[in-house]
Design a protein around this nucleic acid. Sequence first.
DNA 1: CTGAAAGCGCTTACAG
DNA 2: CTGAAAGCGCTTACAG
Lengths: 350, 350
Amino acid sequence: MKKRPRQVDVARFAGVSPATVSLVLNGRTGGNVRISPETRKRVLDAIQHLGYVANPVARSLAGGENRLLGVFTYEALFPIQNQDFYYPFLVGIEEEAAALGYDLLLFTSRGAQGSSRTIYQDGINRLQLADGAILLGHEREKGELISLIQEGYPFVFVGRRDVPGVELAYVAADYREATATLMAHLFEHQHRCIAYLGMRVDNESARDRYDGYCLAHERRGLSVDSRFVHHIDTQEVTPNFVDGLLKQGVTAFVAEHDSTVDALTVAAACLGKKIPADFSLAMLGDPLSGRKELAAVTAFTIPRRQMGSQSVKLLYRILSGAEPMKQVTLKCQLVPGETVAVPPIVQSYP
Amino acid sequence: MKKRPRQVDVARFAGVSPATVSLVLNGRTGGNVRISPETRKRVLDAIQHLGYVANPVARSLAGGENRLLGVFTYEALFPIQNQDFYYPFLVGIEEEAAALGYDLLLFTSRGAQGSSRTIYQDGINRLQLADGAILLGHEREKGELISLIQEGYPFVFVGRRDVPGVELAYVAADYREATATLMAHLFEHQHRCIAYLGMRVDNESARDRYDGYCLAHERRGLSVDSRFVHHIDTQEVTPNFVDGLLKQGVTAFVAEHDSTVDALTVAAACLGKKIPADFSLAMLGDPLSGRKELAAVTAFTIPRRQMGSQSVKLLYRILSGAEPMKQVTLKCQLVPGETVAVPPIVQSYP
DNA sequence: CTGAAAGCGCTTACAG
DNA sequence: CTGAAAGCGCTTACAG
């Protein structure tokens, strides 16, 4: 296979300098460069004749940037379980990257399947391969993010991240307001004792939801009853546990995670209770598309696709220097389902 | 924000030449190069201290490799419809890339959402950013593949691709044998007149299936009746059309595409026929996981995940020079469903 | 065992 | 309007 022609070959053939070929190729016709139509034609003919193709690698090296956007996830980007966890984000990311003419660099090289990936490996930040990066998923520790900031590496997190003393860019869903709205929906359905069932993990999005829960109480002039707030594992949401809460007067549950919704459904069945006739149930998020059986649960949408595209947009603006590291928050939408109703008459308050 | 460190900075810091840094970085310790352990350590410490990451663009320009594997798809990699079309391939690709320590470069930069992407844009092959690439999806034309080969660019296609006079690497599912096996299954259930319903598009995988259909007849000593072979659009699979075939003695259908399975199901309902009591039905592939309603259809699995990981493995071996452009074919597995039964007594042959 | 040098194929000021 | 030159950040013979 014979070597492809270089810019030099084209220049020689057309009887001009390599610089001129480059100028013609890039349409750099503004400013103080002007190529005569004849020269232009001669160059184009030479290109055509030789079948010249500019080397993109050399191009980006000379140009300073490589038009690569990194995508880093702490877990496998394409998990086997939980297929569509990242998917909607990726749809948005690809969409916007395509629109802006960027290619996507997925950092898959380190971190075994099971274990979580880290940005710095042997003290090296491989993200630097790309002009900037989008970060997704649950980080183990904030240290890496701080290093990234200190390096001045441009990145945008998908989801709110709170790092004290540091300004970092993210695009997040407004879980706080969404939860407050969902709570208001329950209040409107006459519920007054609403249990909050969260997970044990403590992260920004969990805190935001709990904040929304408190905020909603405040807005109603109610106070939060700590007996009804639980941060527990799903396995602890047993029929017994649920029954206990019901006996204390709880008429509705809000659940951070869909596995808790499952547990509540099972508990209801065991206790011979009907949802929403006997108690109401809502989810603080939306069921992944793989879980069609949860479609009827009252919940709110997380604008994942939009979060993806907006994060790329923000990163692009940061790269252009048009924007500092800043934060974007997107609205969620309440999705009334079939799991909320006015509660039955409450027999007795303890 | 301060510029990232260059190789030169590391060299200066360690008190060595850039060449030495490069040698350490690439583990070029064989042959007549030998780096003293002390120097090595000094370099590594400098790298660590400065947080140095080699620029992949410069690396590939200089002739080294950058441990980037390209992934090119003709359509959006993350489609909104048809979510899981590419997904299983990507699972395998990511898995194997991670195992081999490669990052993945997704070529998203060109080609609008709707329209199909092309490898060469303005005559430029951007794939060259990566050491090699995996290609997925339905190409419009073979010209680009030929150019790629002529350039000597290393790539592996996922799915069989036939380019006359050219040896190209692919990892494919054995549709031919899978179809023949499925046909044998139908023959064993006493079917003798089995209609083949394919799509209008003519590509390798469609041809392979049809070949399998013919092969199965041959093995049984039967000949293919051309009245029962149709390459048509799904909309043409009307109740009328189906009824016509049944009246000609057809007792079973094999369908290339799941939309044809849908059309047959509808037709059966319209005609008041039951599947498989009145006629049998099988699909030449597997339903995407999003289509749970097709789970009971007799079909065969396409080992998509394995195709993904094997294609990366093959590409890797090609890059190492261990393997020429070669072809790998993977077995499919028959999945008997509930849509095949022994046909009712055939009343009359026309 | 390590350094100086050339080179990969472009782009972009800078002259003229 | 176009050319000569420097430079992007690496790697790889080639010396020594």
